[in-house]
Design a binder for these strands. Structure first.
Length: 406
RNA sequence: GUGGGUGUAGCUCAGUUGGUUAGAGCACUAGUUUGUGGCACUGGGGGCCGUGGGUUCGAGACCCAUCAUCCACCCCA
């Protein structure tokens, strides 16, 4: 038997219902915030991700589905959505056009990781990006949008917030932290020593208890923000409070992608296993420049759809449409024809084998049909249809040519 | 990449210290009932016991390998 590749799942039946319900809800809300749909290719030049996500990240370092295509191009399946949208933004010269451009997207992402609960090799994200707005109000709008989406779906969460500083305050802080780590080098774990050169801020996040003890006195980024970053961070907190969004400051929150600056946030759930991040995002004011566009402030987020799936509270599904069946072989052509025209307006499922009334009613229940329509000996003779409303538990016999009207 | 758990029917799982023809519940199907659903009862179909090798008179069970899957670390959505 041929199976799907490790970490790549089919989405069907009940999961698919949830999946599309999520997309409908999230898309509608993003549109209410003024965003427009954008679709970018699944396959992009590898350099795009190296330059945006960053060579020091795990994603680029070891998780990309990278290969050489038949034309000799170094390409890979997208591991995240932002890079492609930024590329499209620049390629379509929207950076030169100026103004504000707001997008949302959804689709599969690919990372070559060891699968576990809430972590797949092919997974789906819903993402939102905003270009041309430097105001921290836009950062707040992103967070409120995620909050709206999760609330609408009945999903509980905790919001974690941090500021990563900008090109003015981050580099000096980084230096300070590195020298602190150098001094403590003998007392920290191997992972932290590695992180010191790749992504030093990550060490603050180390799970190792003895490392954590050492880091109590480590310099904190939040104390080293420049005037502008500190003011924006304070404003952001005020906006969220004014709008009844609860949050916690997490000074250890470091997004794993290199392009973030200033606002960083993560929505987490305590009910889905160790992969608890359900949405994450932040500001990336420098990324458009890094990818050869004209400097444009930007902010965005992404939601991991699979991680949400089991948390979504679905609206109760009612009975819908028609089930049609015959009790005699001779009546089959009649129901086929009746069903065919009814399908222009409703869902109709037809049983092709003649069966007893009881079996038909059972089938109708199974597919959650509102009406069960059966043609038997009597109906065939009198050119009528027997119709039972499974919800109201009422039945009636009507002339076949009046069926379209009910 | 590292560590641990699990692979028996469509699904959830039993299967004793190795011993005849591998079981249950749910689901499916037919009947009880030749025109009244969700219930009940009775019958029926379904299994290379993940795969390959080994030990043994004998392996679903023990050993080795391999594959798959799940969970955790790392990291992220």
């Amino acid at each position: 038997m041929i199976r799907s590749l490790r970490g790549m799942n089919d989405i069907l039946s009940e999961d698919y219902e949830r999946f599309t319900y999520f997309l409908q809800t999230a898309s509608r809300i993003a549109q209410h915030y003024g965003h427009h749909y954008i679709e970018t290719p699944l396959l992009e030049e590898t350099a795009l991700f190296k330059r945006s996500v960053g060579e020091s990240s795990d994603i680029v370092g070891k998780e990309m589905y990278q290969f050489t295509d038949k034309g000799g191009n170094d390409v890979c399946l997208r591991p995240e959505g932002t890079a492609g949208v930024v590329r499209a933004f620049i390629q379509n010269k929207l950076d030169r056009k100026g103004g504000i451009h707001r997008f949302f997207y959804h689709g599969p992402m690919f990372r070559y990781e060891r699968p576990q609960k809430g972590r797949l090799r092919e997974f789906h994200q819903f993402g939102v990006e905003s270009f041309g707005v430097s105001s921290v109000y836009e950062d707040a709008a992103m967070i409120m949008m995620v909050s709206d989406i999760l609330n609408e779906l009945g999903i509980g969460y905790r919001l974690q917030l941090n500021s990563l500083g900008c090109q003015e305050c981050m580099p000096p802080y980084r230096k300070k932290l590195i020298s602190f780590l150098q001094a403590a080098e003998e007392h920290i774990c191997e992972d932290c020593i590695r992180r010191k050169s790749t992504n030093p801020i990550r060490v603050l996040d180390c799970k190792n208890g003895s490392c954590q003890e050492k880091y109590i006195d480590a310099p904190k980024l939040i104390d080293h923000l420049c005037e502008n970053c500190a003011a924006d961070f304070a404003t952001l907190q005020k906006i969220l409070k004014d709008n009844d969004i609860e949050f916690e400051i997490d000074t250890h929150l470091v997004r794993g992608l290199d392009y973030y600056s200033k606002t960083a946030f993560e929505f987490v759930s305590d009910n889905i296993g160790s992969q608890s991040a359900i949405a994450g995002g932040g500001r990336y004011d420098r990324l458009v420049e890094f990818l050869d566009g004209r400097a444009t402030p930007a902010v965005g987020f992404a939601i991991g759809i699979e991680r949400l799936l089991e948390l979504i509270k679905m609206p109760e599904a009612g009975l819908e449409g028609y089930y049609m069946g015959a009790m005699d072989k001779e009546a089959i052509p009649t129901i086929i024809k009746t069903a065919q025209s009814k399908r222009h307006s409703d869902r109709v499922v037809v049983e092709y084998e003649p069966k007893g009334l009881k079996a038909h009613l059972k089938n109708a229940d199974r597919i959650k049909a509102r009406y069960c329509v059966v043609v038997g000996e009597n109906e065939l003779k009198e050119n009528t249809l027997w119709v039972k409303d499974l919800q109201e538990k009422k039945e009636l016999v009507i002339p076949a040519d009046e069926f379209q009207e009910i």
